[in-house]
């Protein structure tokens, strides 16, 4: 069977060096944390009691959330519920006022964004953050380069900085997977919104992540592309044991792919559980759909 994406040898989580990472046990000490009863196997990505205020507005209040390996968790809620802020807090783009973030049991909440990414968290953005001036192919190659940490100043100076054949092949395979072969060598600013979203998705997958955090990946996509993205997510979870946290307004897509749903409203988790049950809750229907 063909690998989902050409990632070569899957890196074990323990191989991922990330500089001086304090292990979770060494920093554990807060009473709140000791009190939490946790399974012996920590979940893949876990946010504990994240709070963030913007001036007078409480964007997030004590939000906790976890994603297990191979699981697709849908994060839904009306606009302004705090979904993107939660993403940004978990990834370090925004510093939360309080709260802890763990990846595989390691505390990561004091790390800069790029270190968290190197530990295995990949993301896409609600408002596009593609590399203008570069083509989709170049996006994938640079992402692969960085995640493998196989390049650098000295390698460049030795003249060994050009894309290698395996890298080219991996990029080609990813282009194939996300359906961008036709526009592989067009700079991204000439692409439509939907194609650019797929570039971001492909770039995130190229990192061969442990966790994939997707912020409204389907907005701007047409029906066929949505189905494709859904299929890619399912396969990532099933074949490569990737945990996916999915912010999405398209409830059809969420219920198709997600195994668990977390509903956020006004910065609070108002419901959590299986997709069908949660969507049937009156509170959720009221907050999200406007009909009780």
């Amino acid at each position: 069977m063909r690998a989902l994406y050409a990632g070569g040898v899957r890196k074990g989580a323990s191989v991922r060096a990330g500089g001086s990472i304090r292990s979770r046990t060494s920093v554990a000490g807060s009473a709140a944390e000791e009190g939490t009863s946790r399974a012996a196997e920590p979940s893949l990505l876990e946010a504990q009691r994240i709070s963030k205020r913007f001036g007078g507005l409480s964007a997030l209040a004590d939000v906790s959330l976890s994603v297990n390996a191979g699981e697709i968790v849908g994060l839904v809620g009306p606009n302004g519920a705090g979904k993107t802020t939660l993403f940004n807090c978990m990834l370090g783009v925004v510093r939360p006022d309080s709260g802890l973030v763990y990846l595989q049991g390691r505390r990561i909440d004091s790390m800069p964004v790029w270190k968290r990414s190197r530990l295995g968290i990949a993301r896409t953005f609600q408002r596009l953050e593609v590399f203008t001036g570069m083509t989709p192919r170049e996006h994938f190659i640079v992402a692969m380069r960085v995640s493998r940490r196989q390049g650098g100043l000295f390698k460049d100076l030795m003249g060994r900085g050009l894309p290698t054949a395996p890298e080219q092949a991996a990029a080609q395979e990813m282009l194939d997977l996300v359906g961008l072969v036709e526009v592989a060598d067009v700079t991204v600013e000439a692409l439509s919104l939907g194609h650019a979203r797929l570039v971001e998705l492909g770039r995130a997958l190229m990192l061969d992540p442990l966790v994939l955090m997707l912020d409204e990946p389907s907005s701007g996509l047409d029906g066929r592309e949505r189905e494709m993205v859904g299929a890619i997510l399912k396969r990532s979870g099933a074949e490569r044991n990737v945990g996916v946290l999915l912010v999405e307004h398209d409830l059809q897509m969420v219920s198709d792919v997600a195994s668990r749903l977390v509903v956020l409203d006004s910065g609070r988790v108002i419901a959590e559980g299986g997709v069908a049950e949660v969507l049937a809750l009156p509170a959720v229907r009221k907050a999200y759909l406007g009909t009780p």
């Binding site: 953050e129 060994r160 770039r203």
Partner: peptide, 23 residues
């Protein structure tokens, strides 16, 4: 033409995006 140039190109294109892939 090497890694440095590619990473700089990524930063030039989108700083936030570049951080998100670990640069």
């Amino acid at each position: 033409s090497g890694t440095v140039g590619r990473e700089l190109g990524a930063i030039r294109g989108s700083e936030v995006g570049a951080e998100s892939i670990g640069i």
